[in-house]
Simulated assay, not measured.
Amino acid sequence: MRQPSSAKTNLHRHHAAPLTAVLAGGLFLAAGSLANGEEPRQFATQDGTVVVETLATGLEHPWAVEAMPDGALIVTERPGRLRILRDGQLSPAIDGLPEVAVHGQGGLLDVALDPQFATNRTLYLTFAVPGEGGFGTAVARAVLAEDEQRLTDVEEIFRMNRFTRAGQHFGSRIAFDRDGSLFFGIGDRGDGERAQDPRDHAGSILHINRDGTIPASNPYRGDTGGRAEIWSIGHRNPQGIAFDPADGTLLTVEHGARGGDEINTPLPGRNYGWPVITYGRDYSGAEIGEGTAKEGLEQPLYHWDPSIAPSAIAVYRGRMFPEWDGDLLVAALKYQLLARLERDESGAIVAEERLFDGEFGRLRDVVVAPDGALLMVTDEPNGTVLRVSKAPTQ
């Protein structure tokens, strides 16, 4: 594990240890009864004991989960299915999705509910699509029918500008700013040099309005030197994005190569370095770029070496774990863990605790539910939906 790029404090890594006892019945489940009769499991953390419940099994490479206003959950599966989990039951695949290309790491990726979903039933999807030259990343919005069996009014509001046949680094998650506009990331599509070109959507954080138009705050709007949708460049494969509800700070997490996973706080028009600077190495062991720093290129807020393969990020501002207020939660694939990162008053990361190491499989998403519990999905052929809550006191 590497320390924050801007700090010299030694960090201590903590691992959550499973407890042998399981919790007795009576737990509230956000989506109904226990899946397949699986019992909840308890884990010790440095701040107390948590309970992990399996809400659903049998999902094929689930990629994202969101809580709906009525307490049900909506889940994507990378092969191109969108399903609802209610009262412990998974719905059939919802009809009417846009064409999804299941290619390499690409497929149906994120789902995000419109800030006014309770009244307009609008949602947004990121996904891989086929097109001239191969495949790329797109964003669509749609309306979930009242019977929840189909999408209507499906409209593609963004499509990246250069497609290739590469199967990696499509991104892509969505976060809503306070004004309702969308931020999302796209990876470099396996070609690092693309991340340094502001005229190329690959390797960027992007910002659009909910109808696909360009916000006035975008740095390249009206500037022929860059694409109007681009917010920042120099990102390898950003798969996590979130706003801190307390102060509106945008945070992203992205995959490095062999090491060099990063958390960033992207600002408009800034360059976050990939592949010119990085804390990682090529998979062959060779050095990448020009080192770890260069004038004019931004440093990450935090980085990992070796890589944990981060897949999603959330900022904890919930009621259930007040001791975690302001902490960052990062789901990871490689070590199959959830990293909890403590921040000081300045926002700098000062400590890391690693939870659930290898206990549940590859963790693909983590979100904070309305009640303050955590929701996660595991990116496996037999993927699961998990809920993390505080253990009741005896």
Results as ranks from 00 to 15, higher is better:
262 E>N: 13
284 S>M: 05
349 I>N: 05
322 P>Y: 13
316 Y>L: 03
311 S>D: 03
277 I>C: 03
235 H>Q: 11
293 A>S: 04
328 L>H: 07
352 E>G: 10
356 F>P: 13
248 G>Y: 09
255 H>I: 04
290 E>A: 09
353 E>C: 11
286 A>G: 14
325 D>N: 15
330 V>R: 01
227 R>E: 15
331 A>M: 10
282 D>N: 14
339 A>Q: 07
272 Y>R: 11
325 D>M: 13
356 F>D: 07
244 D>V: 09
253 V>R: 01
339 A>C: 07
331 A>D: 12
265 T>F: 02
276 V>P: 01
294 K>S: 07
286 A>E: 14
325 D>E: 15
317 R>S: 10
346 S>D: 14
252 T>H: 02
227 R>Y: 01
230 I>Y: 06
286 A>M: 12
294 K>Q: 15
271 N>E: 09
253 V>I: 15
311 S>E: 11
297 L>V: 00
239 Q>M: 08
247 D>F: 10
274 W>E: 08
256 G>F: 06
347 G>Q: 12
280 G>V: 10
292 T>A: 04
272 Y>K: 11
320 M>Y: 02
270 R>S: 02
342 E>I: 03
330 V>N: 04
263 I>G: 01
253 V>L: 04
239 Q>D: 05
246 A>F: 02
281 R>S: 07
269 G>F: 02
244 D>S: 15
289 G>V: 08
276 V>D: 10
271 N>A: 10
284 S>Q: 05
339 A>K: 01
300 P>G: 09
227 R>K: 15
232 S>E: 00
295 E>S: 00
262 E>T: 12
317 R>K: 12
256 G>E: 08
252 T>F: 06
321 F>S: 03
341 L>M: 15
242 A>P: 02
313 I>D: 04
325 D>F: 08
252 T>S: 14
300 P>S: 11
303 H>Q: 14
249 T>M: 13
315 V>H: 10
315 V>R: 12
319 R>G: 08
317 R>F: 04
237 N>M: 09
248 G>V: 12
324 W>Y: 09
251 L>P: 01
257 A>L: 11
328 L>G: 05
350 V>G: 00
317 R>D: 10
306 P>W: 08
258 R>H: 07
280 G>E: 02
256 G>Y: 09
237 N>G: 09
292 T>V: 15
352 E>H: 07
327 D>A: 14
282 D>K: 02
317 R>W: 06
336 Q>R: 15
329 L>C: 06
355 L>H: 11
233 I>P: 00
350 V>P: 00
303 H>M: 09
316 Y>K: 13
233 I>M: 06
304 W>I: 07
